[in-house]
Amino acid sequence: MAAQPTLSNFELMVMLAIIRIGEGAYGVSISDEIEETTGGEVLLGSVYDAVNRLEEKGLIESSLGEATPERGGRAKRHFRTTSKGLRLVRDTQRSLVKLWKGLPQLKGGEA
């Protein structure tokens, strides 16, 4: 049986951003979504790097949209999660929740 791919922290954020945005997720919207959620600046390069890795692992797929004038006549590259990707996110969530449970240090929102 092939080993299940794993997700880094940032890859997980990108996957979740793609799921949250739904149809039409692309570089800028993914970066905006992560920036809004985390409050930190996200380099577009990091997003492209992550989506390329995720696509290689078969967790997301991409397609080119139509070229628009406000983008200088260039098309958007749209991303969506594959069923394999969704399954992995669910498994990761389960694992994290299990790890989270019963940790007194993390209760009450104080470190």
Partner: peptide
């Protein structure tokens, strides 16, 4: 092209 488009936008 799509990356340059994102930056341009």
């Amino acid at each position: 092209e799509s990356v340059i488009g994102d930056l341009f936008e």
